[in-house]
Design a protein around this nucleic acid. Structure first.
Length: 484
DNA sequence: ATGTTC
């Protein structure tokens, strides 16, 4: 199927409304990226999402768009908070998968000669890989429920912290309102009980980086980013607990969603299964999803405490000597109630961001005060062999994308294709020759995750910057990385 | 992404 596309700007294309689409689609890509997209079904998914009950504005896609379950990865869909539908496929399996940057005052030159010791200590401290558990003592169901009610604060209160303002430097303060831990099943609790403070596998990572380049000195100063200083980046989510919440809801929803009304029955893809926000099932999913999101924040917060301690020990320093603090923490797999302008009127909407990052512009009260003048920090992880970016949200994100930006590089090769390319090579040694020390549980992840398997994240970020949605603030280059 | 097919 070929979709008719209308070019709106050098970086933006519209899929006009037709059939059951309630709104148009809008895709932020260059012409070259658009040509590459014809190979997968992601654009059809953008059009399919436009059928979602209650969707407003447009069905959006960021430049790192690729095919996903129901919604494309890189998709953004806002639905009316009253009459709209919530769709687990618009959040993804890894609820509140997200990214965090911790800044330090350590100079890269001092740290580089200790890279091996630091990466080894990080790898020994933070469990990585599928099924890895026991970073901290296993939690009881009661403790887990407390954790899911409190989010990042749960971990801060137990001493897992970088600085004094870690939680307030998270999107939503590291805790979504409305979380209902009671609606998270026993099975999900069992999976999460020993996974707090664990990294996971796939594209999840913890990186030791340095600030290699500053593009926007004013925003960099506000964010505490200084050239030549060390940062840590954590990319992880809600592990087996969030996965279980998504899985259970999808199973339940697939049997009943068509009964919610003609709009639901007419959805073009069963993977878009959704429920009215106010329905019993919609309410239960939202409460459990918000609880799982808070689990993810606690998870990244515990890893923050463990990582700061590990770096200090490896450097032979006291923790305060690192000058570490959380710059910011964003979720890129989530559905959140937010107020946005729709057709010039303020409206409460549920914004699904599935592989998309919140990117609020300057002056927004929902951005921490220290950053408010320059806009929200937008954290964009790249691949393990190149670099990552810190951006700042622009005002136009608020009018164009419900305050949303891209979330990463996006895959170029499938996992299978990447492994084929990696055959006979020593990825670990290749990275070492470029000054990047990597420790992973197995060789397979390294093959699947090698640089060539990903697009250049700078190409993605440049589209976002070209479209005016966010602007580049700093480039972060890895010295070392731990993986699953 | 995921005790990688309850």
């Amino acid at each position: 199927m070929t979709l008719p596309l209308r070019q709106l700007s050098p970086f933006c294309w519209e899929i006009p409304r037709r059939g059951g689409m309630r709104v148009p689609g809008r895709v932020y890509v260059t012409e070259a990226q658009l040509a590459a997209l014809s190979a997968d079904r992601a654009l059809e998914q953008v059009a399919a999402v436009a059928h979602l009950p209650g969707i407003v504005g447009a069905s959006l896609a960021m430049p790192d768009i690729h095919w996903g379950y129901g919604f494309p990865i890189g998709g953004v869909a806002a639905v009316d908070a009253e009459g709209g539908a919530v769709s687990p496929g618009g959040v993804g399996y890894d609820i509140n998968c997200g990214c965090r940057v911790i800044t330090t005052q350590l100079p890269v030159d001092e740290v580089r000669r200790n890279t091996h010791a630091i990466v080894s200590r990080l790898f020994a401290t933070i469990p990585t890989g599928m099924g890895a558990g026991s970073a901290i003592p296993k939690l009881s169901r009661r403790e887990l429920r407390e954790l899911m009610a409190q989010g990042a604060d749960w971990a801060v209160a137990r001493g897992y912290r970088a600085g004094a303002d870690d939680a307030t430097h998270c999107e939503e303060g590291g805790r979504l309102q409305g979380a209902e831990p009671e609606w998270v099943s026993d099975r999900a609790l069992a999976r999460g009980a020993d996974q707090v403070g664990t990294l996971g596998s796939g594209n999840h990572f913890l990186e030791l980086q340095h600030v290699a380049e500053i593009y926007d000195p004013e925003a960099a100063a506000a964010f505490g980013l200084r050239t030549g200083e060390i940062t840590l980046m954590i990319h992880s989510g809600s592990r087996g607990l969030g996965h279980q919440v998504c899985d259970e809801t999808l199973h339940e929803l697939s049997r009943v969603y068509e009964r919610f009304g003609a709009d639901y029955a007419a959805l073009p893809d069963r993977q878009l299964a959704c429920a009215p926000i106010g329905s019993e099932l919609g309410t239960r999913y939202l409460g459990a999803m918000q609880a799982a999101a808070n689990f993810a924040w606690a998870n990244r917060q515990v890893m923050t405490g463990l990582a700061v301690r590990a770096v200090a020990e490896a450097m032979g320093l006291a923790e305060p000597e690192l000058g570490a603090r959380v710059l910011y923490d964003v979720c890129h797999n989530i559905a959140k109630f937010e107020e946005h302008q729709v057709d010039g009127q303020p409206r409460r909407v549920l914004v699904h961001r599935k592989g998309a990052t919140r990117a609020f512009g300057p002056g927004d009260p929902r951005v921490p005060e220290a950053y408010r003048a320059v806009g929200q920090p937008v954290l964009i992880p790249g691949d393990m062999g190149r670099y990552s970016f810190v951006l700042a949200g622009n005002a136009s994100a608020m009018t164009e994308t419900f305050g949303s930006s891209c979330h990463g590089a996006g895959r170029l090769l499938s996992r299978t294709a990447a492994l084929k390319h990696a055959r006979g090579r020593d990825i670990e040694r290749e990275l070492a020759s470029r000054g990047i020390e990597v420790l992973a549980r197995g060789p397979r992840t390294l093959g699947e995750e090698m640089s060539e398997a990903y697009k250049d994240v700078e190409d993605v970020v440049d589209v976002i910057a070209g479209a005016g949605i966010s602007r580049k603030v700093a480039k972060l280059v890895p010295l070392g990385v731990i993986k699953g």
